[in-house]
Design a protein around this nucleic acid. Sequence first.
DNA 1: CCATTCGGCTAACAATGTTAGCCGAATGGG
DNA 2: CCCATTCGGCTAACATTGTTAGCCGAATGG
Lengths: 211, 211
Amino acid sequence: MPSGQVTHGPSDSDPKAAYPQPSTARPAPRVRTARAAEIIDAARTLLEDRGPRGLTMRKLADTVGIQAASLYKHLPSRSALEVALVEHGLDEIGSALHGALAKSTVDPIGALLDTYRSAGLANPQLYRLVTAGSFPRGQMLEGLEAWAGEPFFLAAGDPHLAQALWSFAHGTLLLELDGRFLDGSDLDRTWQAGAEAFKAARRAIPRPSVR
Amino acid sequence: MPSGQVTHGPSDSDPKAAYPQPSTARPAPRVRTARAAEIIDAARTLLEDRGPRGLTMRKLADTVGIQAASLYKHLPSRSALEVALVEHGLDEIGSALHGALAKSTVDPIGALLDTYRSAGLANPQLYRLVTAGSFPRGQMLEGLEAWAGEPFFLAAGDPHLAQALWSFAHGTLLLELDGRFLDGSDLDRTWQAGAEAFKAARRAIPRPSVR
DNA sequence: CCATTCGGCTAACAATGTTAGCCGAATGGG
DNA sequence: CCCATTCGGCTAACATTGTTAGCCGAATGG
């Protein structure tokens, strides 16, 4: 997900720019027929409230009022459908993260983690799908993954700390979604404990000097 | 995975015990017939080198030289097989973590993360299975999960920091296994960046006083 | 000695993704 | 205006999945 280099944006001479500006562009979404979009949408709600095993071609066809085989007039395969869902998820999470970062300059790491967590909790199954085992990088929209992950690099200041921060967010969210933490443990404080650790580490890294 | 409370062990009066002692006992493994163990073993190697989609009842039966239906004379279902594999994985990871912690008192967090990473990289598919979406907690060996996760609590000193540390390890390992980090990025340094952040946070927490 | 259990087998079923082939309705170019 | 083409539905079928039912020979033990 994370993008590569974070170069300084066009506002290089703006002294208020304490953090580097986004350099990655959000790729244009795919063009789709109305029917295909409708199917993908139905798939999404089916996934979200019936779970991954509830998302089957025949059930999906049913909710759309169609025969399963007819789905293939609109989508080449089930995995293509999954790619579409993953792209939706990445787009939403990326938007949320970029938005959060644009708003809060005082505590970017905290804002980022909060937003990441909220986005995941709002669509648990979709988040799981997006970050599931091995997904088809080759078939995905070029640059989408990089754009969605970029805020971590912007907030952390250092690429390695950025990846570590993303790892923490990803791991915590997955464990929270899967209910793997201690019963009754205060997850807010778990998130906060990690956030504090990374904020402190961030402070130990020199700000990128704005000439 | 993490255990609940970490009470002080029997060596409460030992002044060298800078960290709390394990209080959770490793649950006794299930008793199994030789044939069942053989099947589970075959399933494991099948999973590890053919991937999760390569582990099918018929293929498993083939490698054991049996008919698929005959597997059900030894195992009640595929999900029971998965539970067995998960238990294997938890047992191995737990052993490795407890061992690492017992050895290194100088840098427990670093040792823990190294061991966690190694264990995961050694058996990627098994690790994915162990930490996969929602697994059947009810069917698992009682206390195994708690025992396996306990080292994080021992090393972190604070339950919330422990869960955050575990989250970081889990997230980083998953992202590494799934190849989601930047191509060519130095993962050692990513792990290290997180490790440093958590070590610093650990230092800010008072040691549990040993009366 | 015989009943029971063990552990293999074949046959079958339902559900999954997916393909082939048919067909009516829209559509657009000559 | 007609006709060829495309669009988007349908039914039927296939292979593969987990799983169950039922048969049967060999060991086993009271």
